[in-house]
Design a protein around this nucleic acid. Sequence first.
RNA 1: UGGGGUAUAGCCAAGCGGUAAGGCACUGGUUUUUGGUAUCAGCAUGCGCAGGUUCGAAUCCUGCUACCCCAGCCA
Length: 559
Amino acid sequence: MSHDSTTAPNFIRNQIRDEIDEGKVDKIVTRFPPEPNGFLHIGHAKSICLNFGLAEQFGGDCHLRFDDTNPAKEEQQYIDAIKADVTWLGFEWAGDVRYASDYFDQLYAWAQHLVREGKAYVDDLTPDEIREYRGTLTEPGKPSPYRERSVEENLELLERMRVGEFAEGDKVLRAKIDMASPNINLRDPILYRIRHAQHHQTGDKWHIYPSYDFTHGQSDAIEGVTHSVCTLEFEDHRPLYEWFLENLPVPCVPRQIEFARLNMNYTLTSKRKLKLLVDNGIVDGWDDPRMPTLSGMRRRGYTPASIRKFCEMIGVTRADGGLVDIAMLYHAIRSDLEDNAPRAMCVLKPLKVVLTNVPEGFEEVYDVKGHPARDDMAPRRIPLTREVWIDRDDFMEEPPKKFFRLAPGKEVRLRNSYVIRCDDVIKNDAGEIEALHCSVDFDTLGKNPEGRKVKGVIHWVSVTHGVPVELRLYDNLFQVELPDKDKDADFLEHLNPESLITLEGVAEPGLKDTAPETRFQFERVGYFCADRYARRDNKLVFNRTVGLKDTWAKMQKKS
RNA sequence: UGGGGUAUAGCCAAGCGGUAAGGCACUGGUUUUUGGUAUCAGCAUGCGCAGGUUCGAAUCCUGCUACCCCAGCCA
């Protein structure tokens, strides 16, 4: 599969290009290695686009490999969701889906190899003791009293760990490297721990599970990965990654390259915290349209292409601590949908307008383009009747200067139809506006009125033909740029109470049988997507992906 | 106070010794039956700071400063 020709330079692309030019590598192999303990989010999209994009650009392969070494946290539902998300984003992994657990036998044999070489040992220290012996950032650690066990004893103990003779926490297998290393990862890192857990792939076969460090590089090597791209926090692990490759008879030597993970304002990308939102029912599941998960964004109406474009826009660097403006994401989806979403009229907050100089039973139908700049999109048929809905926001009884919409005595154009003038405001006993009485200027269809300029154009829907719809207006889940900035303060305090506003609107008749996941631009309002699942009281549900740019609202806010 | 990293505009980011790309955001003009779109123009005498090398430095050297990551039997 191949998309998006724009390939801005970045340090990884440059490096690989140079390696290929110099003949150091022929065909590259990358991999996307998620742990199946949650749903993929926008930060993972950056990694997916990078890894699969690299393979595409240089004619190599990218594998999908689940890093499934911790059965306590992993679930099959996450595996299924992750596969679906990667596919939806538009990428195809080379060969079958892979699992680190596919390599557990080989990993165990390599552990035995290290033991035989005197480079690994079984440690009986408790977790607390191990922590104490490890030292601190500024003080060296000290060797475990079990560090010098014989090869035979280590081998036997390791085997007994494997078959489940010991309780969790009783023993671990450790590499024998350097307890005084300034790099804490090299202070005899743990290779295997005891876990009497059912594993989603291997069932009850194992009672010990390899650590990330003992698994990742070797899995890369087994798969022939050439470039193992990961995030910056693994930088300190690279010496360990390389230590295993040097001390084990691996078939090839991958190189680890780190890049900065994505941080975006108003957004959380901690799987732990996202899971908390889900588990506490603060959002409506992992695919709630307010979630930064790929499945949430899909439901919200984001297109795969817009997410890929966003990832291209933000670039790839080693500079951390940066914060991408979510406006860039909004730009990416707007520009895709501006080009590709058919237009429709939909009234969000209906206000009835009676066209008083039009007879009862009047009906006139307009053929309207599906998209102003594209003729390949199906035209729409829009009926005008005596009563129409307009948006309450398009009328003001006492309009400010430069309000180009409806007001008493003022004129406005009904989009695709006539210019009307507001003659009367009908109110109920409570003084609330119930309807507007307007008159049509019949000499304005498809042409400007004589002798005056009518600047305003508003959208509308026939009362008799419009289809009632539920509209879900989404906004940022958090109202502060950095919801988890305060280390200990509760990020839930920063939730945006208006992240979801539900309205009962009316859409033009052609939308009656809209298929799930169909996207529209509701003219003058925003981009909406028919929900994948929901229908409410047999009504269609449209999720607002993002609003149109609104310079009027901006002007209002300023003054 | 140990180790590993990173600093280019409000934000993201190119740049790799020859005189600061691009995008987002913002500001102003034009077009427009979407206050949308499109389009034009503006937006770093300066690249964390201070020195030095050089005809020439964001790029090389030295010294500072700020921020990020690491003390899970998580990944």
